[in-house]
Design a protein around this nucleic acid. Structure first.
Lengths: 109, 109
DNA sequence: TATAGTACTTTGTATTGCATAGTACTATAT
DNA sequence: ATATAGTACTATGCAATACAAAGTACTATA
């Protein structure tokens, strides 16, 4: 049993919530998301992020637009659809419930 | 994108932590664990729990002993090994960090 | 022109929650 | 004595996602 692996498993599902949250605050592109998550000490890597963004787009939760960048290649800026906003709401509840369940179990009440 | 699926993904890795926690409090068998988690509103099913307990045993984190039951078939009572105790300690830290990272991101600080 | 940095795409692997099917033991009903 | 129900555990295959790695493409600089 590998601690790092369990950490990775714990991230499953949570990353989706966090990413939707970041995009819900303001339009951003992949590196923005990586930076903001790194700042919060939640590391997400490209191989995870890009397919996840694609899945969310395909599920109708995100829109994107291409924007020229000041220096470097063009960027894909993402924003939430209405559906994305309400899904994020639901995920917030879900996380809250999970969090509380874990607290309940681990505190022994 | 399916809310239930995301919930299931969020449970990955977390169940391991909770189960170790429950066993760490006192020796118990599978149905005890299912009951205690159900009480905390965190549902775990047999198809998940038994293989997980087996994996933890094989990883040296759990021991078990068979006990006759008052009414019904014999039961497997689990307890933590020393290694299991320190792994649980580490998982507790891991959960705390993840939790805090999520709070940080979702509160917008 | 070549290189470096940035941004995105694709693919395959490992792992675990879960559904399902099955075995085995004990208690109760017929 | 046999059948059924309840309880406890085992095994297997599937779906989904984090992640590593390889690759393409655009822009700036040497």
């Amino acid at each position: 049993m590998d601690l790092e692996n369990t950490q990775s498993q714990m991230r499953k599902g949570v990353l989706e919530y966090c990413i939707l949250c970041i995009i819900g605050k303001s339009e951003c592109y992949a590196s923005d998301i990586i930076d903001q998550m790194k700042e919060a000490k939640l590391i997400v890597v490209e191989g995870t992020l890009y397919p996840l963004l694609t899945r969310l787009k395909n599920a109708g939760l995100l829109n994107y637009k291409w924007e020229e960048s000041k220096s470097g290649p063009p960027r894909k800026y993402y924003s939430l659809t209405d559906e994305g906003k309400s899904f994020l709401q639901a995920l917030s509840g879900t996380w809250g419930e999970l969090s509380e369940a874990v607290t309940s179990i681990t505190s022994g009440k």
